[in-house]
Simulated scan of single mutants.
Amino acid sequence: MTQTPSKPALDTAHTAYQTPSVRFEDISKSFGSTAAINNISLDIHQGEFFSLLGPSGCGKTTLLRMLAGFEAPDRGRILIDGEDMTRVPPYERPINMMFQSYALFPHMSVADNIAFGLKQAPMTRSLRNARVSEMMELVQISPLARRKPHQLSGGQRQRVALARALARHPRILLLDEPLGALDKKLREKTQFELVNIQERLGTTFIVVTHDQEEAMTMSSRIALMREGRIEQLDAPRRLYEFPASRYAASFIGSINLFEAQVLQQTGNELTLACDATGTELHAHCSEKMLPGMTLTLAVRPEKVRLLQPNEQSPNQLRGRIKDIAYLGGVSIYHAELPSGKRVQFTQSNVQALAEQPLNWEQDVVLGWQPDSCTVLTE
């Protein structure tokens, strides 16, 4: 998975002086003896497409529900545009939420579902109807206005729920696993549609998801969560290319991890001993590392190259192909080293399948450059 984020990350230097759209200050929340959120501080800026990413039970939905006002923190404050909203009820917050189930009223038409929240707003019927028409056009469901939810596909119901959530022009839209009910192809298509809608409106979108590809595709920034804490907060590309820990490296995409010991460091060049490879490994590292230190070298599969006969590489391994997965545009290979350690690498399928050069039990020589791997100490 090497997708480029759909929109550039915010310039943090540019936004540092601005009042955040959302600020969590030292937020903690427990349910009985279980700590769901553990002392989180986080700023989310106006116009971001921000994702809370992590496995089930990491605290991402609890954090979203506290922002929505459905849960109260045990400690800390939640500010929206500089105003303390910690104890403000949900209906008084400039926020709307789109639930995973979509929560559409089955007896109402598409238009009536979208209009439901507007009936509590101080506006005339003509203005309300105009707003409903505007929202249906925005999400491209105008021809479905009179249909009931049971007459819609999953993707169409998702659009209705989004239109209803946006109808009151909230400053912040919360989305809880918004694409979880869609099939893969529709989910991929809808990801880009959500990004386009968010960019057109300028609304701050905050998404909860466990799907790493979904977060990477849509987000300007991602908070990767683990056991109630933020493990890493970064733009998608930096989260993928420069993980801060073994957990972050393993959660985002596929990764090869090698336990190694520092032999020496010359400038930014590390020389490492690795029992699993039986060879010296080389990596670039700007941090000072002392001889004898144990660390982890992380290498993405697409950085590992199949070396040609007589070709040399600073990091060079010999192995035997044990597994092959053909995925259309790319094939994934697992090569087993003499130590039993397996190394994953990929190759683009630019030739016909019958001409692919690699087969099971074939001996291969693999390599990568010192600046293609990441040194992890956590």
Rank of each mutant, 00 (worst) to 15 (best):
Q212F: 11
W360E: 00
A276G: 06
L173R: 03
R93C: 07
S245F: 11
D81A: 09
P301W: 10
K322T: 03
M85D: 11
V160G: 13
R77D: 06
D11E: 03
H169Q: 09
T266L: 07
E311S: 04
A215M: 07
Q344Y: 05
N359E: 08
R238L: 08
Y333V: 00
L306E: 12
T374S: 09
M108L: 15
L290V: 14
G180A: 15
E83M: 09
Q100N: 03
I222H: 01
V375C: 10
E193Y: 12
A273M: 01
Q344T: 14
Q100V: 01
T4N: 11
A248C: 04
T346R: 09
T124Q: 03
L64E: 07
A121G: 01
G319M: 02
L297D: 03
Y102G: 02
Q18E: 11
V22H: 12
A298H: 04
R93P: 12
E231C: 02
N196F: 03
G202F: 14
E269Y: 12
I40V: 15
K7Y: 03
N38L: 04
E177W: 13
T86E: 05
K7N: 03
V262I: 15
Y240I: 01
F345W: 10
D275V: 01
Y247C: 01
C274T: 10
M218Q: 11
P170S: 02
L307N: 05
A325V: 13
V139I: 14
Q362F: 08
L337D: 06
T374G: 02
E213T: 15
E71S: 10
V208D: 09
K7I: 07
F105L: 02
T19K: 13
A273V: 05
H45I: 08
A354N: 10
C373G: 02
P338V: 01
E302N: 13
Q191I: 02
Q261V: 11
Q264C: 12
R168P: 00
T277W: 02
Q212R: 08
I37C: 14
Y326W: 11
A352F: 14
R87E: 12
